[in-house]
């Protein structure tokens, strides 16, 4: 009559339950580490800008703030990252003694080569974003989306997403996607968050219609 009791002992008393919990926790912890720590490390490659540009130094020398170099063209389109032509006025000869200045003048200005700047805010190709609509018509400032890059003395490391090829700044530094500042992320949700808050219901300039095709062209 002891056999059934033995069976019960085998089920409960051989430590299987403990092992199950232990391995569950091991799996849980390992995958959490992979997801939160290893994956972001593997996902992004680190790249330095070809020339370390000092925004803080330049902003003091110009009259119109960011728009002195990142200007709007006559037709309203946005020029984005400056071309060599804009720099040549002052930088035809080496100014100052920094290493980056020497690189800039010798390798780019003198050879007439455009600097292949890595653009932190570059969106996928078919995202249509109009700077003029936001800055001129909407009265927004640059900091809201781009943060305080204009005050930085040095360009931060460009972290390139190995899968998409875009900067880490689009998803945001925080891998969880949470943000504290408006400029921490540049995903579609971040656009709509502001649009909802401000009650902006934009329509396409070309078609006069709203919805997806305003931005996705």
């Amino acid at each position: 009559m002891s056999k059934p009791v033995d069976h019960k002992k085998e089920v409960l008393g051989d430590g299987s339950g403990g092992f199950a919990i232990l391995f569950f926790l091991l799996g849980l912890v390992a995958s959490l580490i992979v997801g939160w720590v290893v994956y972001p490390k593997l996902l992004y490659s680190q790249k330095n800008q070809p020339v370390d540009f000092n925004h803080a130094l330049h902003i003091d020398l110009v009259d119109e703030g960011c728009e002195s170099c990142h200007f709007f063209r006559e037709d309203g389109t946005y020029s984005g990252v400056p071309k060599l032509a804009q720099c040549i006025g002052c930088h035809e000869e080496v100014q100052g003694e920094t290493k980056d200045e020497a690189i800039f003048v010798e390798q780019y200005v003198k050879q007439g080569r455009e600097v292949p700047w890595l653009i932190y805010a570059k969106q996928p190709d078919c995202v249509f974003f109009s700077h003029v609509a936001h800055v001129k018509a909407g009265g927004m400032d640059c900091v809201t989306c781009h943060g305080h890059i204009g005050e930085s003395a040095s360009l931060k490391v460009y972290e390139e997403n190995r899968i998409t090829g875009y900067s880490r700044d689009i998803w945001g530094k925080n891998i969880s996607g949470l943000k504290t500042n408006t400029w921490d992320r540049m995903k579609m949700d971040d656009c709509s968050e502001c649009h909802e808050e401000k009650g902006v219901n934009a329509t396409s300039v070309q078609t006069g219609k709203g919805a997806c095709f305003v931005c996705h062209k």
């Binding site: 299987s16 092992f19 199950a20 919990i21 232990l22 391995f23 569950f24 926790l25 091991l26 799996g27 849980l28 912890v29 390992a30 995958s31 959490l32 992979v34 997801g35 939160w36 994956y39 996902l43 997403n161 899968i163 998409t164 998803w171 891998i175 969880s176 996607g177």
Partner: peptide
């Protein structure tokens, strides 16, 4: 069998609680 099973279940739970699947879907 139980150990491996638990590890997989734990791993799945941990993965779901990490940003990996959501971020990977977006990236892909």
């Amino acid at each position: 069998f139980l150990s491996i099973g638990s590890f997989i279940v734990g791993g799945a739970a941990g993965t779901a609680l990490s940003p990996l699947p959501w971020k990977l879907t977006d990236d892909l």
